[in-house]
Each structure stands twice: as structure tokens, then as C-alpha cells.
């Protein structure tokens, strides 16, 4: 608060800074109004609910820290957290790498850029529900295209979504298919890298690989960081595809955290416990995001 006070005082003294500051606040008014009206209250209420027993149909009963204590001893919570962490921490980096590689390739002045971009991006436009149907069809053990193609080369494909060993991996593969979503963001960023920088690097004798690491990656690092963080935030909350394709099975192999939370809140009518699960998830994601921001602080290049 002390720094805030000082910053405020410093800004106020200079007309230029004061104008900037006032514009900054003015520009945030619509968002902040929306936040205060629609989001802040419900979030605070759900935080309070996490300290209650609430079956939705009857008023909540405060129970102190009981939900949080129960959560630590809940083996399925740990199982779902493990599944989610594996899914997230494997699929997000892979997705970022593949998406970035695609963007780099498309940034080589290839012929028919927009056609290529379409080819790689279009899977990311397919609605989750549709791609859930599509993948449960493609990866069907008996009749799916993937196993039929494998069969043609005499490989007996696994049971994919139906196998406790493969189900989670199949979701990771499915997530790779939409790497084009990141690609389009990287491409936009790559096209924003000033050509002059490449020229300078060439003059310095840097080869393509060195230019990539010295110029391209640092200059596009905000986009990379963004996709990585958004990927982590999103994949820790994966729900729809799992809900539609496996509903957590077989034998809890794809029981994801939010699916488990959903079950508690809406199927078992333990909304207090579900809220506690949600706020623990919040802490986890927040911690991971904070960590990636801290680590990236030194690595990410911004225009300042």
C-alpha cells in the first residue's frame, strides 16, 4: 500500500503522468464495473461455500475447515489431480512446441501461406463437442479409422479410450490435433518481428539456428508465454471432452479434476466440498502461473 501511495503521489505531480494514470483508470471502468457486478460477488460466495456443507436444496451450513481436511484424505481427489497434472504438463508443452514449429515453417515465405494456415488451423475451429464425437469414432478400438489403418499394416492397435493405460494418452494426442490454435498466435507474433533484426543478425554471421534462438524466440516470447500459461490454465480445467468421451473411465484413468469437482457439486450434491476443490485448484493454477511468470521474467522480451 505504501508503494501504491508513493506511485500515486509521483504520478499526480506530473501532468503527463497524471493524465496517463487517469486514462488508465478510465479505460478500466467498464471492465471493473462488470467485474464488481457479475463476478466478484459470486466468487466470494463460492469461497464462503467452501467452508460450508451445501446440498444446493437446503441452506448452507458452515463447517469450518472440514471440506479442506476431507479433501486431503480423499484418494480420488489425488487420483484426479495426478491425471490432470500429467495431462496438462505433458500435453501443453507438446502443443506449444508443435504449434511453434508449424508457425516457424509457415513463416518461411512458403507458397500458398493462407492455404497452409487453414490446413493447420482448421482442427482448432472444430467445436469440442464435434471433435469429441469425431475422436471417439476415429479412436474406436474395433472400427475406428486409426486402428483400421494400423490393421492394414498388420499392427493391432490398442483399445485407446477404452484402455486404462491408453485413455489419458489418447486425450493428449487429441489435444495435439488443435495445436494450430497456438500456431496462429505465434504466426501473428512472428510477423511482428522487425526484419531489421534478422538482417542485423545475418550481418553478425548468425546461422538460421542461432537466429532462431537469438532473435525469433525472444521476440515472440510473449506469445509463447501466453500460450503456455493459457494452456496450463485451460488444461487444468479440462472437462467437456472427457465428460463426453469417457466420463472419467475406464477405472478412473481419465478422471480429471474438474470432472471430479462436477460430480461432487452436481451429482453428489456436495457443493461445499466442490467449492473447496475449486479453490484448491485455483491455488494450484495460480501457483503454476506465478511460477511461469517468475521464470519467464528473465526470458520474455517485451517492448518497454
Amino acid at each position: 500500500m505504501l508503494t501504491f501511495h508513493r506511485q500515486w503521489r509521483d504520478s499526480w505531480r506530473s501532468k503527463l503522468l497524471r493524465d496517463e494514470m487517469l486514462f488508465g483508470y478510465a479505460a478500466l471502468i467498464p471492465y471493473l464495473a462488470g467485474f464488481l457486478i457479475f463476478v466478484a460477488g459470486p466468487l466470494a460466495y463460492s469461497l464462503w461455500l467452501s467452508f460450508t456443507q451445501y446440498n444446493i436444496l437446503q441452506p448452507p451450513v458452515p463447517v469450518g475447515l472440514d471440506n479442506y481436511k476431507a479433501l486431503i484424505e480423499d484418494p480420488l481427489m489425488w487420483k484426479s489431480l495426478e491425471n490432470t497434472a500429467v495431462y496438462s504438463l505433458v500435453s501443453v508443452p507438446l502443443q506449444v512446441i508443435l504449434g511453434y514449429a508449424l508457425a516457424l515453417m509457415l513463416n518461411q515465405q512458403v507458397k500458398g501461406l493462407s492455404a497452409w494456415r487453414t490446413v493447420y488451423y482448421v482442427p482448432a475451429v472444430v467445436p469440442i463437442v464435434a471433435s469429441a464425437y469425431l475422436f471417439s469414432y476415429l479412436f474406436n478400438a474395433d472400427t475406428g479409422l486409426v486402428n483400421l489403418l494400423l490393421k492394414m499394416v498388420r499392427i493391432s492397435g490398442p483399445n485407446w479410450f477404452g484402455s486404462p493405460d491408453w485413455a489419458l494418452r489418447t486425450f493428449i494426442i487429441m489435444n495435439l490435433w488443435v495445436s494450430g490454435g497456438g500456431m496462429i498466435v505465434y504466426l501473428a507474433a512472428l510477423q511482428g518481428v522487425p526484419t531489421a533484426l534478422y538482417d542485423a543478425a545475418k550481418i553478425d554471421g548468425a546461422n538460421a539456428w542461432q537466429r532462431l534462438w537469438a532473435v525469433t524466440v525472444p521476440m515472440t516470447s510473449p506469445a509463447l508465454l501466453f500460450m503456455f500459461m493459457i494452456g496450463i490454465i485451460g488444461s487444468f480445467q479440462v472437462f467437456t471432452s472427457v465428460f463426453i468421451i469417457t466420463s472419467g473411465g475406464p477405472v478412473n484413468a481419465t478422471l480429471m479434476y474438474v470432472l471430479y469437482l462436477y460430480r461432487h457439486g452436481w451429482s453428489y450434491l456436495q457443493m461445499g466440498y466442490a467449492s473447496a476443490l475449486a479453490w484448491v485448484l485455483f491455488a494450484i493454477i495460480f501457483g503454476l502461473t506465478y511460477l511461469s511468470l517468475r521464470v519467464s521474467g528473465r526470458l520474455v522480451h517485451y517492448e518497454v
Binding site: 467485474f35 459470486p42 466468487l43 463460492s46 480445467q237 472437462f239 475449486a278 485448484l281
Partner: peptide, 12 residues
Amino acid sequence: TLMIPYHVYLIP
């Protein structure tokens, strides 16, 4: 606010 699953503040 991105990090809270919608399912828990739906009712509020």
C-alpha cells in the same frame, strides 16, 4: 478469474 471452474460459481 480464469482459474475458477465455472461449475462452482454457476449457482451464486
